[in-house]
Design a protein around this nucleic acid. Structure first.
Lengths: 81, 81
DNA sequence: CGTGTAAGGAATTCTGACACG
DNA sequence: CGTGTAAGGAATTCTGACACG
């Protein structure tokens, strides 16, 4: 179910998080909801699971950066010897 | 996915139907979305599939009554001899 | 019967900011 | 850093009605 079909209100109910938290985790690049033409967010069930996982880890002491998805393997710096 | 999570707008996109049709099929007892506290409809993926099926049958000539789910087997009238 | 539409209101969501720590 | 909140606006959805056929 990677179909982006849920509004933030439904996600709020499903995850138990606040809209503030949900939007913040998006701002921190932890989730990537789609947008309607009007600008409203649309989430998938995967997003919901991810949010639950994220919040659990947060309570265990992780911060948003540590929970970020494995970034694209860009190679930079580390000049060769 | 019998989880009622989609707003009518998403259902409109997924089915290709108009909101008018979607609401009308509900009025005719063909689908049964839930409601938010505020009164907004929430549909499941099952509802979406059902709507697509319904509309297809409609175009084949069926009417809303004929497409109604098998009604509860209530017994009435038909006085015994 | 099944569907389109204009009308007015209400629920939902959005952004940017101030706050705290 | 992560989250709460009040503020104002905009997108979304709701109902009941008129229309056509």
């Amino acid at each position: 179910m990677e179909n982006k079909v849920m509004s933030i209100g439904v996600v709020r109910e499903l995850t138990g998080l606040t809209e503030r938290q949900i939007r913040y985790y998006e701002q921190r690049k932890l989730i990537f909801p789609e947008r309607t033409k009007g600008g409203n967010r649309r989430y998938s069930f995967e997003d919901v699971n991810k949010l639950i996982y994220i919040h659990q880890k947060m309570q265990e002491g992780f911060n948003t950066v540590e929970l970020r998805e494995p970034p694209k393997p860009r190679r930079r710096g580390c000049a060769p010897a």
